[in-house]
Amino acid sequence: MLKEERLQIILKMLETNQRVTSLELSQILNVSDDTIRRDLNELDQNGLLLKVHGGAIPKSSTPYKLKERVNFAHEEKVILAQKSLEFFKDGQVIILDNGSTNMEVAKVIPLDMKLTIFTNSIPVAQILSEHPSVELFLLGGKVFKDAQTTYGHDVIEVLGQIRADLCLLGICSIHPEIGLTIPDYEECQSKRKMVEVSQKVIALVTADKIGTAENFVVCKYKDLDIMLTDGALYETLPAEYRGKGVEIK
């Protein structure tokens, strides 16, 4: 069997099963462990999967550039935004992380709700700048143009001076063992600080993020307080996500 055929089979198995092990690949493809290791390394380096101990799992299929993500799974994001309002109360200090889902959250905050919101998202700040009752702080730092977000030392320093009631965390991938992950190291550091300084952390999760992982870990899955899903995902969520101290709604 040619290498290109093996790689396609590996990716097809991963798409179907959401995880492959080196042992099963070696047996099914009738090649050595070393060959499988090289194949997985190549696919990992090309960004087609994430190599983990004993095998591989998928990477997120969500586009990374914000302008490409805005209309991706838009209906689900609107549902999640509406559900998030259950946790908002007058007088709270909230960290609203970057991301297209949190843009939808910013749009639905009631106009009479008095909140103090810190955000690293330029589009979220633009939306909330029209809100009459929100005291708004845009975290200043280096601008990550693709994601339209700020990050870096200045962002982390300001976050260190906050004790937030609530953080709505933007994520690329969520895995019950690996945790919440994203593909950019520097942005990861800002998100880790958000988790650290918040009393309650909520992830708004669309189906495409489930069972996938990127290279940089924001936090462990159990560090979440709440995972919000839409109705369809709630019904089909794998059992591995349940019973780990995270409230799923």
Rank of each mutant, 00 (worst) to 15 (best):
L85Y: 01
K142P: 02
I162V: 12
D34F: 05
S100R: 05
G141C: 13
S190C: 06
D208T: 07
L233V: 06
V246L: 07
E5A: 15
L224H: 09
M227H: 09
E42I: 12
T181R: 03
K107L: 09
E15A: 15
I202V: 13
N41D: 04
V158G: 02
P63A: 13
V195L: 09
T62K: 05
T35F: 06
N46E: 15
I210C: 08
Y221M: 06
Y221I: 02
R37E: 02
T150P: 08
D39S: 02
F216I: 10
E235W: 14
G47M: 08
A232S: 14
L49E: 01
L80F: 14
G55I: 05
L138D: 07
V20Q: 03
A73W: 04
I10A: 10
E86H: 13
V218P: 00
V218H: 01
R37Y: 03
R38A: 04
L43H: 04
F137A: 03
Q161E: 10
L49K: 00
T150E: 02
G141M: 12
E247Y: 15
I36C: 12
N46Q: 15
G141N: 13
K67Y: 15
P183E: 14
L228P: 05
E15F: 14
L50P: 00
E86N: 13
K3Y: 05
V155M: 02
T149F: 00
H53C: 00
V195N: 02
I109T: 01
K89R: 14
V143N: 08
V155G: 07
G152I: 02
Q148M: 07
I28Y: 12
P183C: 14
F118P: 00
F72P: 06
E4P: 09
L180N: 11
Q126A: 05
M227V: 04
L115T: 11
K59P: 01
K12D: 13
T206K: 03
D165A: 06
A203K: 06
L169D: 02
F144M: 07
A73S: 15
V218I: 11
I36R: 12
